[in-house]
Amino acid sequence: MVLAGAAPAKGILFFAPEMFWDFVLVALLFVLVYVMIRRANAGLPIPPIRKIAGLEAIDEAIGRATEMGRPVHFTPGMSGFGPETYAALATLSYVAKTAAQYDTRLIVTNRQPTVHPVTAEIVRQAYLEAGRPDAFNQDDVRYLSDWQFGYTSAVLGIFRREKPAANLMFGYWMAEALILGEAGAEAGCIQVGANTNVFQIHFFIVTCDYTLIGEEQFAASAYLSKEPMLTGTVVAQDMVKILIGLLLLAGSVWATVAGNADKLVKFLSQ
């Protein structure tokens, strides 16, 4: 007996199944980003980003390390290339430039072998831009281990041996978040942690002096560079967030009044 297969799902017009509203959302963000770039280029005002304590604290952390004559430790997190890592790399660029200007030793540790050469290049370039190419030590940008806890134990060793005064943990973190945060606190580091993993953020909150929660990390490049164009993209992102918030509110009201919001869910799943 031959069983009839389920009919392939069809999308709206020429869109792939269940991709229409995804496309609308992406297109909307692109349009808003474009509008904000145009505004920035035309010199029109762009709303400023609110104060983010964790990013403000980076200068304080590097300053403290400089005064104590001890190194700064920076890590771009556990994941390979993704939004969190790109945000961490943007922060690294700023940290490396500041460390180069202050003549403070910067140790960068990597778990991902693919991310390692990029961090090395960012730090090298930062020292070059700061006019101190001779101060760049490639041995301070290290690949440690691809193994999660191999990497963790190697960083614990660095905390013990090299005694950094500041520990900056950006990117995406998993079960090692608490181990590294607590070991950093024990080593007496001023710590800034950033994470988007909701199951691990609280560990950074209790162990770090400053924590960037979720999206705050993605605003780092705009916040630190103060570039109107980049700030504009954060504003565009907030506009989409407001829109989604309104949609959530509408869905809640709909579900409360009608008993469920199945029709809305079905409509938005097209």
């Binding site: 992406v26 939004p83 969190e84 979720g214 999206e215 980049l230 992102q237």
Partner: peptide, 11 residues
């Protein structure tokens, strides 16, 4: 975080 990641990717 998802919308932030989205905007970061566009950048």
């Amino acid at each position: 975080a998802a919308i932030g990641a989205f905007a970061a990717s566009i950048r």
